[in-house]
Amino acid sequence: MTAVRTPPPRLPVRDKAAAKECGWGGVSPMLTRLAAERATGVLVREYGTLHLAEGQVVHAESPCAPSLDLLLAVRGTPDAGTGGTEGETSGRHRAASRPAEGAPVTPGALELCRLVALYDAAYFALGPSSTPGRFRYDDAEVPGAMRPVPVADLERETLRRRDLLHRIWPDQRTDGAPLVRPDALAAPSLTARRRAVLNRVDGVRTAADIARELGRPAFHTLVDVRRLVAAGLVSPRPQAPPPEPAPRAAGPADRDRDPDITLLKRLRDALEAL
């Protein structure tokens, strides 16, 4: 009997260089394609929405990130309806059409805040998701849009931000979990910004809640939270809080959870990078 010995097929390995060219290397292949075809419309992803005009991002929103109105409003300076920027009177950008309540926000400050808010919301909108995104072609102009941001810039910045967080403290549970202070040690001297975050850690609030209360971009809050975690002052609340009747003996609670798809993807990327 002659055994035909065929070598096993080569394991499929993604070619990173080729992948980048056909749009599979970025944070969202769909977004890359939409940018290439200069699409106009709304991309809805699991954690946020991106508004595109001719393939460039003009507006982003995410439930994880405070809106522009909130960022402008918290310190008592809602936009005074400067009227200097065209097309801002639609309801979609309420900050720009709200009546004056305090000192007017200059066009420069508004542009600054809007860009910060766009990158902030886009960071979450482009985060790893478990459901596919949907795109709706829509020619309606986004009111108040200024300074469109190229998709490539946004994707690069999003990846850089992920990397920045990872370098501060490589545990992404801190981003979404309620935060606790492990013990009420007197905090060492902290900056005013970080102290404001620490003072709001109460075992219930997440980083996103704290960002909303402070009127501060959510990503900036994640940075401060990770620095506080790295300093041992804050930790994410354990996923399974000790149950009252305590039926189960102490055991590794996390072991029987399904591995998440994001983790598998990161493992694959790490293995391929070897």
């Binding site: 960022l71 402008l72 409003a73 918290v74 310190r75 008592g76 300076t77 305090g102 000192a103 926000v105 400050a109 600054l112 805040c113 910060v116 910004r193 402070l214 009127g215 501060r216 971009p217 900036h220």
Partner: peptide, 8 residues
Amino acid sequence: PTSFDSSV
């Protein structure tokens, strides 16, 4: 310095 929370 800005009237809202920023770091630029």
